[in-house]
Design a binder for these strands. Sequence first.
DNA 1: CCCACAAGTCGCT
DNA 2: AGCGACTTGTGGG
Length: 165
Amino acid sequence: MKTNLVELPIFTRDGKFIAHYSDKGLAELNFPVGRASSRAAKKEIVPAKIRGWHRATEAALKKILAGGEPKKFPPLDLAGTVFQKSVWNALRKISLGKTKSYGEIAAAIGRPKAVRAVGGACGANPVPVLVPCHRVLAANKKLGGFSGGLDWKRRLLKLENVSFR
DNA sequence: CCCACAAGTCGCT
DNA sequence: AGCGACTTGTGGG
């Protein structure tokens, strides 16, 4: 789903995130890239609705980075399989400071044995942080892995006072 | 269509 | 504690 995505940066004290918007909502969010090399954004016209979404995204992201829980999310336009969407949907139900295991997510979507597939779906999550894939730990509160970098997972969990091993 | 992999989990040693 | 087997969905050949 890469139709004419609009990229907009979000500057935080943790670096510059990149948000990608389709014409339906937030489609992807990237962690800061090591090299800021912010190429001058071509000043394309950004539709008003996208600017609105971006404002919501920025607010939500900063809220989370500050250890809070956003009250409002931008519309999400997640590209993925039905299975992945149900996983992401289940993830969004995890509230601040709570954690779930991959097994619990798997059970929640009716595929108790698909724990590994759940891991894969989390890794394919195009919108980390807003879809709290970092609140998913392995069975005995072990850290597991994280596509965006384990340091991020650790930092985010710490922000929420979550204990892990 | 078949094969290998993924951010897991459980059981056995 | 460590190692291996099994599971399900996804992506590449």
